[in-house]
Simulated assay, not measured.
Amino acid sequence: MAVELRGLTDNARKTAISELNGRLADSIALALAVKQAHWNVKGRNFIAVHELLDMLHNNLREQIDVMAERVQQLDGVALGTVEKVSGSTTLAEYPTDLTKAEDHIRALCDRYRDHGEKLRTAIDATDEAGDADTADILTAASRSADKDLWFLESHLE
């Protein structure tokens, strides 16, 4: 049975589902990139970087759940399988030959910047479509991504 959310047009709902699934794919891809770095990082400040990457992964996991649950609230289907994510993420593929902490951090910074930009675009799209609640969810994800990018970039100073 479909959930009817009062005050949302069909266009707002469809726009939100589409934007959420796009950002969900990127968030899952980014979370996997963070884990790739976490498992393979070596070098100065190893433990600090290793633990930072765990924190970043946990932050992404929280945002992923909130986005996927919002898709369900809007009577959509959250698309989070490896196959769907692989086919729809807009983030650059993460290199698997990196080991140095600084190389991982730079690669992750690039992806966090791209992710943050796309979150902000999705915020505008869902707000303009009339779904302030989804825009708020995406704003929280954007704020988290910006803070995590700051933590990463601070290791490059």
Rank of each mutant, 00 (worst) to 15 (best):
M1G: 08
E4H: 14
R6L: 12
N11C: 06
N11G: 05
A12P: 05
A16E: 14
A16K: 06
I17W: 06
I17Y: 00
S18N: 14
S18R: 15
E19K: 10
N21Y: 03
G22W: 04
G22Q: 02
A25I: 05
S27Y: 02
I28Q: 04
I28H: 04
I28M: 07
I28G: 08
A29Q: 05
A33G: 13
K35R: 14
Q36F: 01
K42M: 06
G43K: 06
R44G: 01
N45A: 07
N45T: 04
F46H: 13
I47C: 03
I47Y: 15
A48V: 10
V49Y: 09
H50S: 09
L53G: 04
N58W: 05
N59I: 03
N59F: 00
L60H: 03
R61P: 03
D65P: 01
V66D: 02
A68F: 06
A68V: 13
A68W: 09
E69T: 05
R70L: 05
Q73I: 06
Q73Y: 06
G76C: 01
V77S: 01
V82K: 14
V85F: 13
E93H: 05
P95G: 01
D103R: 12
H104S: 11
A107Y: 11
A107C: 08
C109G: 10
D110P: 00
R111S: 13
R111H: 14
R111T: 10
Y112A: 09
D114R: 13
H115Q: 11
E117N: 08
K118I: 05
L119D: 08
T121F: 00
T121A: 12
D124V: 12
A125N: 13
T126E: 01
E128R: 11
A129Y: 06
G130D: 08
D131Y: 09
D131N: 00
T134V: 14
I137L: 02
L138K: 10
T139L: 15
T139H: 12
S142K: 07
D146I: 00
D146P: 03
K147T: 10
L149E: 09
E153S: 03
S154A: 15
L156Q: 06
L156V: 09
